[in-house]
Write a protein that binds this DNA or RNA. Structure first.
Length: 268
DNA sequence: ATGCCGGCAGTATGCCGA
């Protein structure tokens, strides 16, 4: 069984590429982030024609997450319990479309789009940290309830957990950039302390192993990227994982997303 | 051994991304 996660940076702009990738990648489940669509302009036919069921959660042109599966799609859940809200200025705070779950062939799959943070002193940063802390608390409860649960927390984590996960740590420090700060890394590492396993790092260690490359500054051809997309697996699921790869071919060419798909193999 | 920012809303340009 293959499970993929991919921040597509607009499902409408990327519909042809997503369809082509589904048809060649042979994945059973695809967790998608940043669909940038509402249900009424989501390209359902892309998945139907390819033989996948799909569940989508999108509230506006921002965020948006989905799960496509050809091995069942049960108990779809939008948002996690107590998922923190965000509202800018006078706008009403809402639970954004950043988390959706479904059970696919016995695996509880979460497609997660962690808040960006925007800046070290931006109000979006405490939102990001609280969002991760709350998710981790509940994920820990899920493991307590069933230590044998097969759960994957897949998505765009917007955290580079180690210095080797960015092409030049000094550049990030000099520019006071997000994704590499201690609080962000602590919020990510807390999931590992809870018991989840970073199967991408285990199977695909760095340095120089990235999942995201900025569109600007020739970042991709210069191999200047970031490792920020992960699939964190519960212990029972991690024990069955036999591999994890980043499909950097998909980052090439005109019309690519700025993220590459991350695919894990499970002996199921 | 890849190519010099992209998508969306709404119709000019600001927001958002990381």
């Amino acid at each position: 069984m293959k499970i993929a996660t991919w921040n597509v940076n607009s499902i409408r702009a990327r519909a042809d590429r997503v369809e082509a990738w589904l048809n060649k990648s042979d994945v059973d489940v695809l967790a998608i982030q940043e669909t940038k669509a509402k249900d009424d302009n989501f390209p359902w036919e892309v998945f139907e024609f390819s033989g996948y069921e799909v569940a989508h959660f999108g509230l506006s042109q921002w965020n948006g997450v989905a799960i496509a599966s050809r091995v069942g799609l049960e108990d779809v859940q939008r948002t996690f319990p107590e998922q923190p809200t965000f509202g800018k200025g006078n706008q009403e705070a809402v639970q954004e479309a950043r988390a959706i779950a479904a059970t696919c062939n016995g695996v509880r799959v979460w497609s997660l789009y962690v808040p960006n943070g925007r800046g070290l002193e931006d109000p979006h940063m405490p939102y990001k940290l609280t969002w991760l802390e709350t998710l981790n608390r509940h994920a820990g409860e899920w493991l307590q309830e069933d230590p044998e649960a097969k759960i994957v927390l897949a998505g765009d984590w917007n955290v580079a957990p180690r210095d080797e996960d960015v092409w030049d740590m000094q550049f990030f420090l000099d520019n006071q950039m997000t994704h590499v700060s201690e609080p962000e890394r602590a919020a990510f590492n807390a999931f590992l302390e809870t018991g989840f396993v970073d199967v991408l790092r285990e199977n695909n260690p760095g340095p120089g192993v990235y999942t995201y490359w900025d569109y600007t500054q020739l970042r991709f051809p210069k191999k200047e990227g970031m490792k920020i997309d992960f699939q964190l697996c519960s212990p029972a699921l991690a024990a069955q994982v036999t591999g994890a790869v980043i499909d950097r071919e998909e980052r090439k060419g005109k019309g690519a997303s700025d993220h590459a798909p991350v695919v894990i193999d499970i002996a199921l």
